[in-house]
């Protein structure tokens, strides 16, 4: 997704010189095309790319000052450093002033698996959606990443983009569709509703195939944006099922499962919500994304098991 993002951003930046790209010293092998396209001048005039060093608080503050002057700065780092380290700067800067600063967090969830828990962003969605006016976008694959950026790069107010690292996998049935504030239905069935967010949707798609072979037909909905929340679409879908399963690479508290549970409670929907995510980080466990999905019950096999239990329970 990160290559799709930067490739698309480069296209947009060629058309609109308000776009700037700032990085907190990350993006090796990813951001070079942008930096090479817009070489810097020593007098700073019309410069577009800045490595501000390992200083994320300052990066957000600088982005706030740039945005007030009319620029659209994209601030790039690993998701936890982009979103969580400078959180108060995001709150008091782009969120409070409602300025078009774009926070770009790469490797949401545990996609920096072997780097360990300091590099995982497991509460970024919860934190960002708590800020009024902060649009949260978490694409499910690289095609949707491109569509999401094309639709939202110049919307008013701040945006948080939570990106995965995978630029190859595509979600069957999604075809890169994105609409701000609207979920995408990628599969229809009447036995179980699965609502997914982010790159872990690939596991959901595989699980839905396996469930179908066992006679359980699922409706699968991909939520790729919050604030505005996809209230009407999800309420309509949830009203048609007795059980719904949410799947996210995020702590259970505050993420997609919480959002869906809020809708169920507020709209008095008679649907049980089964949340699949991370309850807590296990000590001394790191590894590849696939391994961690297995450990935390987010692999397709684990999701199938959970789905069967949910439908039969």
């Amino acid at each position: 997704m990160r290559h799709a993002f930067v490739t698309t951003l480069l296209e947009l930046a060629e058309r609109d010189d308000r776009i700037l790209l700032l990085t907190g010293d990350l993006g090796y092998t990813v951001l070079e095309p942008f930096a090479e396209k817009f070489p810097n001048r020593s007098d700073l005039r019309r410069n577009r790319f800045f490595n501000v060093g390992v200083a994320e608080q300052n990066m957000v503050g600088v982005g706030t000052g740039l945005a007030e002057a009319g620029y659209i700065p994209f601030l790039y780092s690993i998701a936890t450093f982009a979103a969580i380290r400078p959180y108060e700067f995001i709150r008091n800067g782009p969120a409070l002033h409602q300025l078009p600063v774009r926070i770009v967090g790469v490797g949401g969830g545990f996609e920096y698996g072997s780097a360990g828990p300091t590099h995982w962003a497991l509460e970024d969605i919860a934190l960002m959606r708590a800020q009024p006016g902060m649009t949260v976008i978490a694409p499910a694959d690289h095609l949707q990443t491109r569509a999401a950026l094309l639709e939202t790069w110049d919307i008013p107010g701040p945006v948080y983009y939570r990106l995965g690292k995978d630029d190859k996998t595509t979600i069957p049935g999604l075809e890169g569709r994105f609409a701000l504030g609207r979920p995408q239905v990628i599969r229809k069935g009447s036995d179980l509703l699965i609502i997914a967010m982010g790159s872990v949707t690939s596991e959901v798609a595989k699980a839905a195939d396996a469930l179908s072979e066992r006679g359980i037909e699922c409706t699968v909905i991909v939520v790729s944006s919050l604030n505005p929340d996809p209230v009407d679409d999800l309420v309509e879908a949830l009203s048609r099922f007795s059980v719904a399963m949410t799947v996210e690479n995020h702590y259970l508290a505050g993420g997609l499962g919480s959002v869906v549970s809020e809708f169920v409670a507020e709209h008095r929907i008679g649907c049980r919500v089964v949340r699949c995510g991370i309850e807590r980080v296990l000590d001394g466990v790191s590894g590849g994304t696939g391994y961690l999905r297995h450990i935390y019950g987010l692999s397709s096999e684990a999701l199938v098991k959970k789905a069967v239990e949910s439908v039969e329970g």
Binding site: L44, R45, T64, G65, L66, A67, E68, P73, F89
Partner: peptide, 12 residues
């Protein structure tokens, strides 16, 4: 930090 961004904007 905000002032640094505002000053950078002017220089750009």
């Amino acid at each position: 930090a905000i002032g640094t961004g505002a000053a950078l904007a002017a220089r750009l």
